[in-house]
Measured scan of single mutants.
Amino acid sequence: MSGIALSRLAQERKAWRKDHPFGFVAVPTKNPDGTMNLMNWECAIPGKKGTPWEGGLFKLRMLFKDDYPSSPPKCKFEPPLFHPNVYPSGTVCLSILEEDKDWRPAITIKQILLGIQELLNEPNIQDPAQAEAYTIYCQNRVEYEKRVRAQAKKFAPS
């Protein structure tokens, strides 16, 4: 494992614990031996107030490669969400998460999670990743928002 990646992720964890947006979660997972795995984080993004996503808490896994922060983490909703920019596998399609697009090593975990929260309610229809959600979003916004509200209710924190 890269010392650069681990040191950056340790800084990220410290900064997150000191200050993070209300309702968001970002925690490194534990290895079988109980030690912390900084390369694999369990996160959760709350649906934004005043949107059909409100009330939901959407679980996301963030996986970092050894060359982080040169390369972005892979962000994957578990379980996958109904959304035009979420692949059926759950992987998020967002330009700041793509090395050859808008990724920059200075982007923080907090910025990534806030960017994904923004994307939930403002899909990028130029870059669809899920045919069904994309089609319904474009053709029947009322039905799309109904499905999103049902999903938010399903993923409401207990």
Rank of each mutant, 00 (worst) to 15 (best):
V25H: 09
E143R: 06
K154W: 06
A156P: 10
K14S: 04
V148W: 03
T135G: 06
A156N: 04
F24T: 04
D100A: 13
P80C: 06
I112W: 03
S95V: 03
Q111R: 15
G23Q: 00
Y134E: 06
F58E: 05
Y87N: 02
G90S: 03
E54W: 06
L97N: 01
I4V: 08
A5Q: 13
L9P: 02
L120P: 03
K59T: 12
E12S: 04
P69E: 01
F58L: 03
R141F: 11
F22I: 01
I45N: 04
Y87L: 02
P84S: 07
A129T: 02
F24K: 01
Q151S: 06
V142I: 13
M62E: 02
E143C: 11
S2A: 08
D67E: 11
P46V: 09
G34M: 10
M62I: 10
A150I: 14
P52A: 14
F155E: 02
S2R: 04
S71A: 15
L63W: 00
G90F: 02
P69Q: 01
K30C: 04
Y144T: 02
S70R: 09
V142N: 15
P123I: 05
P73F: 03
V86T: 00
P73S: 06
I45S: 06
I107A: 13
A26D: 04
D127T: 15
R147H: 08
W16A: 05
L81M: 11
R17C: 00
R13V: 01
G23V: 00
E98A: 15
V27A: 08
L63S: 14
E99T: 05
G23E: 09
V148S: 03
R8M: 11
F22L: 06
G34H: 14
F77W: 01
F58Q: 06
L9E: 07
G50N: 15
S95F: 00
L81V: 12
V148K: 01
L120F: 06
R149Q: 11
M36G: 04
P128H: 02
L120V: 06
N85I: 03
A44F: 02
N40R: 09
I125M: 09
E132Q: 09
L38H: 05
S2Q: 15
S71G: 15
V25A: 08
K65R: 13
I96P: 01
E78D: 12
Q111Y: 15
S89K: 11
E12M: 06
F22H: 08
G50A: 11
R61E: 10
K76R: 14
Q151L: 07
K74I: 15
Y134D: 06
K14F: 06
E118C: 10
T51G: 07
S158W: 11
F155V: 12
V148N: 00
C93G: 03
N85H: 01
G50S: 12
S95Q: 03
E78I: 10
C75I: 15
D102P: 02
G34L: 07
A26F: 13
P84H: 00
W103V: 00
P105Q: 03
G56F: 07
M39Q: 02
T108W: 14
K30S: 11
I107W: 00
R13C: 01
E78V: 13
N40T: 09
F64M: 15
L97A: 11
I112S: 07
Q126Y: 10
F64Y: 10
K30A: 09
T51H: 07
K48T: 14
I107N: 14
L57M: 13
I96D: 11
K14W: 08
Q151Y: 08
G23W: 07
P80T: 12
L81P: 05
R13L: 05
V142K: 15
P88C: 00
N121H: 09
A44N: 08
D100I: 15
C93A: 05
A131V: 11
L9I: 06
T29D: 10
G23I: 03
I116T: 14
G56L: 02
D127V: 00
K30G: 09
L63C: 06
P79G: 14
P123Y: 04
I116A: 15
F22T: 01
Q111W: 14
D100E: 08
L119P: 03
V25W: 07
A133D: 03
K49H: 14
V25S: 08
G47W: 08
V148R: 02
E12T: 01
S89F: 12
I109T: 06
Y87K: 03
K146M: 14
R17V: 00
Q139H: 13
L60K: 05
F58G: 05
E12Y: 01
L9S: 00
L114Y: 12
S95M: 01
Q139G: 07
Q111V: 13
Q139T: 12
L63T: 08
K49E: 12
Q11C: 14
R147E: 10
A106Y: 05
M62Q: 04
A156L: 07
Q151K: 05
P21R: 00
E118I: 10
P46S: 07
P84I: 14
Y137G: 02
S95D: 01
L119V: 07
P46M: 05
R147K: 13
N31M: 13
K48G: 02
T35S: 14
P84F: 01
G47P: 01
S7R: 08
Q151V: 02
A150R: 12
F24V: 05
N37M: 11
K153E: 14
E78H: 13
R141N: 13
H20S: 01
R61M: 10
W103A: 01
R13E: 03
K110Y: 05
K48L: 13
E145L: 14
P123E: 02
K154G: 02
G55W: 09
N37F: 13
A131D: 08
E42D: 12
E132A: 10
A156G: 08
P105I: 07
K74V: 15
P79V: 14
G115T: 00
V27I: 12
W16D: 02
E99C: 13
L113T: 10
C43F: 06
G47S: 01
E98W: 10
D19C: 03
G90Q: 04
I116S: 11
C138H: 08
L6V: 11
C93S: 00
K65M: 15
E54D: 06
F64K: 03
E132L: 12
G47E: 02
E99L: 00
D19G: 10
N140H: 09
S158T: 13
L120I: 07
L97W: 10
Y137S: 02
N37K: 14
M39P: 06
G56P: 09
G115Q: 02
H83Y: 01
E98C: 06
C75R: 07
K153D: 15
N37V: 13
I109Y: 03
W16H: 04
P72W: 03
